[in-house]
Simulated scan of single mutants.
Amino acid sequence: MNPAPTGRTASAASTASSPWGLGGLTGVVPPVCTPLTPALEVDVPSLERLVDHLLGAGVDGLFVLGSTSEVAFLPDAHRRVVLDTVVKHVAGRVPVLGGVIDMTTLRVIEHARIAAEAGCDGVVTTAPFYTRTHPLEIETHLRQVADAVPVPVYAYDLPVSVHSKLDGQMLVRLAAEGVLAGVKDSSGDDGGLRTLLLALRDAEAAGFSVLTGSELTVDTAFAMGVQGVVPGLGNVDPAGYARLYRHCRAGRWDEARAEQERLLRLFDIVNAGSPGRMGRGSSALGAFKTALHLLGVIDCPLTAPPQVPLDAAETGFVRDRLAAAGLL
Protein backbone atom coordinates (compact mmCIF):
# COMPACT_ATOMS: atom_id res chain seq x y z
CA MET A 1 0.00 0.00 0.00
CA ASN A 2 1.60 3.23 -1.13
CA PRO A 3 0.19 6.70 -0.41
CA ALA A 4 2.62 8.32 -2.81
CA PRO A 5 3.02 12.07 -3.11
CA THR A 6 2.12 13.24 -6.60
CA GLY A 7 2.57 16.47 -8.54
CA ARG A 8 3.45 19.48 -6.44
CA THR A 9 2.95 17.51 -3.19
CA ALA A 10 6.03 15.44 -4.10
CA SER A 11 9.41 17.00 -3.55
CA ALA A 12 12.55 15.10 -4.46
CA ALA A 13 13.31 14.79 -0.76
CA SER A 14 9.90 13.47 0.18
CA THR A 15 9.81 10.81 -2.53
CA ALA A 16 13.34 9.73 -1.80
CA SER A 17 12.62 9.30 1.94
CA SER A 18 9.15 7.75 1.59
CA PRO A 19 8.97 4.05 2.49
CA TRP A 20 5.74 3.70 0.51
CA GLY A 21 7.08 4.08 -3.01
CA LEU A 22 5.20 5.66 -5.88
CA GLY A 23 2.28 3.34 -6.62
CA GLY A 24 -0.74 4.90 -4.89
CA LEU A 25 -2.80 3.89 -1.87
CA THR A 26 -4.35 0.42 -2.07
CA GLY A 27 -5.97 -2.26 0.08
CA VAL A 28 -7.91 -2.19 3.35
CA VAL A 29 -7.59 1.05 5.31
CA PRO A 30 -9.96 1.00 8.31
CA PRO A 31 -11.15 4.32 9.77
CA VAL A 32 -9.95 3.72 13.32
CA CYS A 33 -12.43 4.12 16.18
CA THR A 34 -11.36 6.43 19.02
CA PRO A 35 -11.70 4.61 22.38
CA LEU A 36 -12.66 6.88 25.26
CA THR A 37 -12.37 6.52 29.01
CA PRO A 38 -15.41 6.93 31.31
CA ALA A 39 -14.12 10.49 31.82
CA LEU A 40 -14.25 11.00 28.03
CA GLU A 41 -10.50 11.27 27.54
CA VAL A 42 -8.73 9.32 24.79
CA ASP A 43 -8.02 5.82 26.13
CA VAL A 44 -4.46 5.43 24.89
CA PRO A 45 -3.89 1.78 25.94
CA SER A 46 -7.16 0.75 24.28
CA LEU A 47 -6.26 2.69 21.14
CA GLU A 48 -2.91 0.90 20.99
CA ARG A 49 -4.65 -2.47 21.37
CA LEU A 50 -7.05 -1.53 18.60
CA VAL A 51 -4.13 -0.68 16.32
CA ASP A 52 -2.59 -4.07 17.12
CA HIS A 53 -5.95 -5.76 16.44
CA LEU A 54 -6.07 -4.14 12.99
CA LEU A 55 -2.44 -4.67 12.04
CA GLY A 56 -2.55 -8.26 13.23
CA ALA A 57 -5.42 -8.93 10.83
CA GLY A 58 -3.34 -7.77 7.87
CA VAL A 59 -4.80 -4.36 7.01
CA ASP A 60 -2.83 -2.19 4.61
CA GLY A 61 -3.09 1.18 6.34
CA LEU A 62 -4.97 3.17 8.96
CA PHE A 63 -7.17 6.24 8.69
CA VAL A 64 -7.49 8.09 11.99
CA LEU A 65 -9.84 10.98 12.72
CA GLY A 66 -12.45 10.08 10.14
CA SER A 67 -16.20 9.85 10.66
CA THR A 68 -15.95 6.46 12.40
CA SER A 69 -13.27 8.00 14.62
CA GLU A 70 -15.87 10.55 15.82
CA VAL A 71 -13.66 13.36 14.54
CA ALA A 72 -16.56 15.84 14.58
CA PHE A 73 -17.04 15.21 18.31
CA LEU A 74 -13.42 15.48 19.45
CA PRO A 75 -11.67 18.59 20.83
CA ASP A 76 -8.40 19.54 19.20
CA ALA A 77 -6.37 18.17 22.13
CA HIS A 78 -8.04 14.75 21.71
CA ARG A 79 -7.22 14.83 18.01
CA ARG A 80 -3.55 15.42 18.74
CA VAL A 81 -3.43 12.54 21.24
CA VAL A 82 -4.90 10.21 18.61
CA LEU A 83 -2.40 11.30 15.97
CA ASP A 84 0.62 11.02 18.23
CA THR A 85 -0.48 7.69 19.71
CA VAL A 86 -1.21 5.95 16.43
CA VAL A 87 1.79 7.25 14.49
CA LYS A 88 4.14 6.29 17.32
CA HIS A 89 2.58 2.85 17.85
CA VAL A 90 2.45 1.98 14.14
CA ALA A 91 6.12 2.96 13.84
CA GLY A 92 6.10 2.91 10.05
CA ARG A 93 4.63 -0.58 9.61
CA VAL A 94 1.77 0.75 7.45
CA PRO A 95 0.84 4.23 6.24
CA VAL A 96 -1.26 6.38 8.55
CA LEU A 97 -3.68 8.95 7.10
CA GLY A 98 -4.93 11.73 9.35
CA GLY A 99 -8.37 13.24 8.98
CA VAL A 100 -8.21 17.04 8.99
CA ILE A 101 -11.94 17.59 8.71
CA ASP A 102 -13.28 21.01 9.69
CA MET A 103 -15.58 23.74 8.46
CA THR A 104 -13.22 26.17 6.71
CA THR A 105 -9.94 26.19 4.82
CA LEU A 106 -7.83 27.94 7.47
CA ARG A 107 -8.94 25.49 10.16
CA VAL A 108 -8.30 22.52 7.87
CA ILE A 109 -4.82 23.80 7.01
CA GLU A 110 -4.02 24.13 10.70
CA HIS A 111 -5.13 20.54 11.34
CA ALA A 112 -3.22 19.34 8.26
CA ARG A 113 0.02 20.93 9.40
CA ILE A 114 -0.35 19.33 12.83
CA ALA A 115 -1.03 15.92 11.25
CA ALA A 116 2.02 16.24 9.00
CA GLU A 117 4.18 17.30 11.95
CA ALA A 118 2.91 14.28 13.91
CA GLY A 119 4.20 12.03 11.15
CA CYS A 120 1.08 11.15 9.17
CA ASP A 121 1.78 9.88 5.67
CA GLY A 122 -1.17 11.79 4.21
CA VAL A 123 -4.17 13.87 5.21
CA VAL A 124 -7.86 13.60 4.34
CA THR A 125 -10.24 16.55 3.98
CA THR A 126 -13.86 17.01 3.04
CA ALA A 127 -15.23 20.08 1.30
CA PRO A 128 -15.86 23.03 3.64
CA PHE A 129 -19.22 22.89 5.38
CA TYR A 130 -21.69 24.80 7.57
CA THR A 131 -21.75 27.67 5.08
CA ARG A 132 -22.81 26.89 1.51
CA THR A 133 -19.89 26.62 -0.88
CA HIS A 134 -19.69 26.92 -4.65
CA PRO A 135 -17.83 24.21 -6.61
CA LEU A 136 -15.05 26.68 -7.41
CA GLU A 137 -14.68 27.44 -3.70
CA ILE A 138 -14.38 23.72 -2.98
CA GLU A 139 -11.66 23.40 -5.61
CA THR A 140 -9.84 26.42 -4.16
CA HIS A 141 -10.08 24.83 -0.72
CA LEU A 142 -8.49 21.58 -1.90
CA ARG A 143 -5.73 23.40 -3.77
CA GLN A 144 -4.88 25.57 -0.78
CA VAL A 145 -4.73 22.60 1.59
CA ALA A 146 -2.45 20.74 -0.83
CA ASP A 147 -0.21 23.78 -1.14
CA ALA A 148 0.07 24.10 2.65
CA VAL A 149 1.43 20.68 3.59
CA PRO A 150 4.32 18.45 2.44
CA VAL A 151 2.28 15.22 2.46
CA PRO A 152 -0.32 13.81 0.04
CA VAL A 153 -3.87 15.12 0.32
CA TYR A 154 -6.92 12.91 -0.17
CA ALA A 155 -10.39 14.30 -0.76
CA TYR A 156 -13.31 12.83 1.18
CA ASP A 157 -16.61 12.77 -0.71
CA LEU A 158 -19.22 12.75 2.06
CA PRO A 159 -22.35 14.56 0.87
CA VAL A 160 -24.58 13.16 3.63
CA SER A 161 -22.62 15.23 6.19
CA VAL A 162 -21.04 18.00 4.14
CA HIS A 163 -24.06 18.63 1.87
CA SER A 164 -21.78 19.02 -1.16
CA LYS A 165 -21.06 16.28 -3.69
CA LEU A 166 -17.52 16.53 -5.03
CA ASP A 167 -17.55 17.18 -8.77
CA GLY A 168 -16.03 14.31 -10.75
CA GLN A 169 -14.48 16.54 -13.40
CA MET A 170 -12.79 18.56 -10.65
CA LEU A 171 -11.35 15.40 -9.11
CA VAL A 172 -9.98 14.27 -12.47
CA ARG A 173 -8.45 17.71 -13.02
CA LEU A 174 -6.81 17.79 -9.58
CA ALA A 175 -5.62 14.21 -10.05
CA ALA A 176 -4.04 15.01 -13.41
CA GLU A 177 -2.32 18.08 -11.96
CA GLY A 178 -1.02 16.13 -8.96
CA VAL A 179 -2.89 18.29 -6.45
CA LEU A 180 -4.70 15.31 -4.93
CA ALA A 181 -3.38 11.82 -4.27
CA GLY A 182 -6.80 10.20 -4.14
CA VAL A 183 -10.39 10.30 -2.96
CA LYS A 184 -12.41 8.39 -0.41
CA ASP A 185 -15.85 7.98 -1.98
CA SER A 186 -18.60 7.72 0.63
CA SER A 187 -21.24 9.24 -1.63
CA GLY A 188 -23.15 6.00 -2.18
CA ASP A 189 -23.44 6.96 -5.85
CA ASP A 190 -22.26 3.83 -7.68
CA GLY A 191 -22.95 5.34 -11.10
CA GLY A 192 -20.94 8.42 -10.24
CA LEU A 193 -18.12 6.25 -8.90
CA ARG A 194 -17.93 4.24 -12.09
CA THR A 195 -17.99 7.40 -14.20
CA LEU A 196 -15.12 8.81 -12.13
CA LEU A 197 -13.06 5.63 -12.51
CA LEU A 198 -13.56 5.70 -16.29
CA ALA A 199 -12.65 9.39 -16.52
CA LEU A 200 -9.50 8.84 -14.47
CA ARG A 201 -8.51 5.98 -16.75
CA ASP A 202 -9.09 8.12 -19.83
CA ALA A 203 -7.02 10.92 -18.29
CA GLU A 204 -4.23 8.44 -17.45
CA ALA A 205 -4.14 9.77 -13.87
CA ALA A 206 -1.63 7.19 -12.65
CA GLY A 207 -1.10 6.94 -8.90
CA PHE A 208 -4.46 8.50 -8.00
CA SER A 209 -6.26 6.19 -5.56
CA VAL A 210 -10.01 5.77 -5.42
CA LEU A 211 -11.09 4.25 -2.11
CA THR A 212 -14.67 3.19 -1.48
CA GLY A 213 -16.32 3.90 1.85
CA SER A 214 -19.31 1.73 0.92
CA GLU A 215 -18.35 -1.29 2.98
CA LEU A 216 -21.29 -3.46 1.87
CA THR A 217 -20.50 -3.37 -1.86
CA VAL A 218 -16.73 -3.79 -1.75
CA ASP A 219 -16.64 -6.70 -4.18
CA THR A 220 -18.62 -4.67 -6.72
CA ALA A 221 -16.39 -1.62 -6.22
CA PHE A 222 -13.21 -3.64 -6.77
CA ALA A 223 -14.73 -5.16 -9.88
CA MET A 224 -15.30 -1.58 -11.13
CA GLY A 225 -11.67 -0.71 -10.47
CA VAL A 226 -11.26 0.98 -7.09
CA GLN A 227 -7.91 0.64 -5.39
CA GLY A 228 -9.02 0.27 -1.77
CA VAL A 229 -11.73 0.24 0.87
CA VAL A 230 -12.18 2.25 4.08
CA PRO A 231 -14.66 0.13 6.09
CA GLY A 232 -15.97 1.25 9.48
CA LEU A 233 -16.96 -2.37 10.15
CA GLY A 234 -13.30 -3.18 9.53
CA ASN A 235 -12.64 -2.16 13.13
CA VAL A 236 -14.71 -5.14 14.25
CA ASP A 237 -13.71 -7.69 11.61
CA PRO A 238 -10.53 -6.50 9.90
CA ALA A 239 -9.58 -10.04 8.94
CA GLY A 240 -12.83 -10.39 7.00
CA TYR A 241 -12.08 -7.32 4.92
CA ALA A 242 -8.49 -8.45 4.39
CA ARG A 243 -9.81 -11.76 3.04
CA LEU A 244 -12.34 -9.96 0.88
CA TYR A 245 -9.62 -7.75 -0.61
CA ARG A 246 -7.38 -10.73 -1.34
CA HIS A 247 -10.24 -12.57 -3.06
CA CYS A 248 -11.03 -9.54 -5.22
CA ARG A 249 -7.41 -8.92 -6.11
CA ALA A 250 -7.02 -12.57 -7.17
CA GLY A 251 -10.26 -12.56 -9.16
CA ARG A 252 -11.91 -15.11 -6.88
CA TRP A 253 -15.32 -13.47 -7.25
CA ASP A 254 -17.43 -16.31 -5.82
CA GLU A 255 -15.33 -16.33 -2.65
CA ALA A 256 -15.44 -12.53 -2.55
CA ARG A 257 -19.22 -12.54 -2.81
CA ALA A 258 -19.54 -15.06 0.03
CA GLU A 259 -17.25 -13.03 2.30
CA GLN A 260 -19.06 -9.80 1.41
CA GLU A 261 -22.40 -11.37 2.27
CA ARG A 262 -21.08 -12.60 5.64
CA LEU A 263 -19.91 -9.06 6.40
CA LEU A 264 -23.26 -7.66 5.28
CA ARG A 265 -25.00 -9.85 7.87
CA LEU A 266 -22.53 -8.74 10.54
CA PHE A 267 -23.19 -5.11 9.61
CA ASP A 268 -26.67 -5.52 11.10
CA ILE A 269 -25.06 -4.54 14.42
CA VAL A 270 -25.47 -0.90 13.37
CA ASN A 271 -29.22 -1.37 13.88
CA ALA A 272 -28.79 -2.22 17.56
CA GLY A 273 -29.86 1.16 18.89
CA SER A 274 -33.54 1.97 19.34
CA PRO A 275 -34.55 4.78 16.92
CA GLY A 276 -36.90 6.00 19.62
CA ARG A 277 -34.00 7.15 21.79
CA MET A 278 -30.97 7.66 19.55
CA GLY A 279 -29.91 8.63 16.05
CA ARG A 280 -28.38 6.44 13.39
CA GLY A 281 -24.88 7.66 14.19
CA SER A 282 -25.16 6.80 17.88
CA SER A 283 -26.41 3.34 16.98
CA ALA A 284 -23.69 2.60 14.41
CA LEU A 285 -20.69 4.01 16.26
CA GLY A 286 -21.99 2.66 19.55
CA ALA A 287 -22.32 -0.78 17.97
CA PHE A 288 -18.75 -0.73 16.63
CA LYS A 289 -17.38 0.25 20.03
CA THR A 290 -19.61 -2.20 21.87
CA ALA A 291 -18.40 -4.97 19.58
CA LEU A 292 -14.77 -4.02 20.22
CA HIS A 293 -15.50 -4.02 23.97
CA LEU A 294 -17.13 -7.46 23.80
CA LEU A 295 -14.14 -8.74 21.81
CA GLY A 296 -11.81 -7.49 24.56
CA VAL A 297 -10.06 -4.95 22.35
CA ILE A 298 -11.12 -1.74 24.15
CA ASP A 299 -11.99 -1.14 27.79
CA CYS A 300 -15.01 1.11 27.42
CA PRO A 301 -17.66 1.37 24.69
CA LEU A 302 -18.61 4.99 25.34
CA THR A 303 -19.13 7.38 22.43
CA ALA A 304 -18.61 11.12 22.66
CA PRO A 305 -21.60 13.28 23.64
CA PRO A 306 -24.23 14.06 22.62
CA GLN A 307 -24.28 10.51 21.26
CA VAL A 308 -26.20 7.97 23.35
CA PRO A 309 -24.59 4.71 24.53
CA LEU A 310 -26.19 1.33 23.92
CA ASP A 311 -28.10 -0.23 26.80
CA ALA A 312 -27.97 -3.85 27.98
CA ALA A 313 -30.56 -5.16 25.51
CA GLU A 314 -28.87 -3.38 22.60
CA THR A 315 -25.51 -4.75 23.72
CA GLY A 316 -27.05 -8.21 23.65
CA PHE A 317 -28.14 -7.61 20.05
CA VAL A 318 -24.52 -6.85 19.12
CA ARG A 319 -23.28 -9.91 21.00
CA ASP A 320 -25.67 -12.18 19.11
CA ARG A 321 -24.53 -10.82 15.74
CA LEU A 322 -20.88 -11.29 16.66
CA ALA A 323 -21.55 -14.88 17.63
CA ALA A 324 -23.45 -15.55 14.40
CA ALA A 325 -20.47 -14.19 12.43
CA GLY A 326 -18.09 -16.53 14.24
CA LEU A 327 -16.29 -13.75 16.10
CA LEU A 328 -17.34 -14.80 19.63
Rank of each mutant, 00 (worst) to 15 (best):
172 V>W: 02
173 R>W: 12
135 P>A: 03
155 A>R: 06
156 Y>F: 12
163 H>K: 14
135 P>R: 02
168 G>D: 12
140 T>E: 11
164 S>H: 15
143 R>C: 09
154 Y>R: 03
136 L>Q: 10
136 L>R: 15
158 L>R: 03
141 H>Y: 05
165 K>Y: 13
154 Y>D: 04
170 M>Y: 10
154 Y>P: 02
158 L>K: 01
136 L>D: 06
150 P>D: 12
149 V>T: 12
143 R>L: 04
167 D>Y: 15
159 P>T: 02
143 R>G: 01
166 L>S: 01
138 I>L: 09
161 S>E: 09
172 V>R: 00
157 D>K: 06
148 A>C: 09
163 H>A: 13
135 P>Q: 04
156 Y>R: 00
157 D>T: 13
136 L>N: 06
157 D>H: 10
158 L>A: 03
158 L>I: 10
165 K>C: 09
156 Y>P: 09
168 G>A: 13
144 Q>I: 03
151 V>C: 08
136 L>P: 01
135 P>I: 01
146 A>N: 08
143 R>W: 08
137 E>H: 03
159 P>S: 04
157 D>G: 05
162 V>N: 01
153 V>C: 13
148 A>R: 03
157 D>E: 11
153 V>N: 07
138 I>K: 06
173 R>I: 11
145 V>K: 06
147 D>Y: 00
172 V>G: 00
171 L>C: 14
139 E>Y: 07
143 R>V: 14
159 P>A: 08
